[in-house]
Design a protein around this nucleic acid. Structure first.
Lengths: 145, 145
DNA sequence: CTACTTTAGTTGTATATGCAACTAATATAA
DNA sequence: TTATATTAGTTGCATATACAACTAAAGTAG
């Protein structure tokens, strides 16, 4: 419970590094395969795979992003015909977000590539170790909240 | 080495979560204590604490950021009188970046708060576990490179 | 029913990020 | 020495992020 010897042995620093490396690897994989979405847009596509038709608040809550951010990313995705906004009939303040056929097609391909990248990321690492790591990160996150 | 049961048990997802939570906690701590720097600017101040006078390329290499990003963050920090750009006498292509007295003062306070946050983050967690987590994250990063 | 509060979303403003293309300066090869 | 390649930094462009302030709609208290 003392300070780490160096940044390179600091779990918080390494977590930031991993986040960046993963972001770049995903961006690179999408570009290489001509999948025209950003990592952030992909996270919304992936969420909609399971929860098509949720509103922007729910997207923000699930992805842990400010609603301003969601407004703008969703606007770009709508402009690119990946999703559509439909005013909620039961509450006209809200927009329900639905995947378009184009959005579904892109999302399917993007999920395949992200899955492959995940397998590459954890290759050679035992499940027990991954579980321990998940437990550690979860506790650190809780400590910070 | 199979897919995780859920996002919440996925080390890659949790790492992204931790990065975000830490960023917000740092931002909040700086704001609360009227320390007028962003987390990204702080990372440069912290680097300059050990390596005052390095150039923008080296900053980018150390923080794993594109040189474009460094150009712009450094410009903002210069405008805010935290650092100064000095043309390298030995190679007039490069700028050497030096902390100003104001930059040093702010950096000192920011480091104190980030240290306190680090201690909060790892409270109740054994050093052996942190070392195992660091090892895990390092291997995942290597797998992705 | 009216007034106050809460909620969903948008817009203004500012910072961070990276790719592509560019300038200027240095290094290297012919 | 001159032509070419590399390197440091900047600018154009597009996206992501969030705080503050705002509109509009829905919920609630009197």
């Amino acid at each position: 419970m003392s300070s780490p010897r160096s940044l390179e042995s600091n779990v918080l620093f390494l977590s930031g590094e991993l986040t960046h490396v993963l972001h770049r690897a995903l961006t690179s994989a999408f570009k290489k395969n001509r999948i025209a979405v950003t990592v952030e847009q992909f996270s919304i596509l992936a969420l909609l795979f399971y929860r098509d038709g949720i509103n922007q608040q729910e997207i923000g809550a699930n992805l842990n992003r400010n609603k301003t951010t969601i407004t703008r990313v969703i606007s770009i995705m709508e402009r690119n015909k990946l999703i559509v906004r439909v005013t909620d009939k039961d509450d006209s303040r809200g927009n329900l977000i639905f995947l378009t056929p184009k959005g579904k097609a892109i999302q399917k391909r993007a999920i395949e590539h992200s899955g492959a990248l995940y397998m590459k990321a954890i290759s050679g690492i035992a499940n027990t170790e991954l579980a321990q790591g998940a437990s550690l990160l979860t506790r650190i996150i809780q400590n910070l909240k």
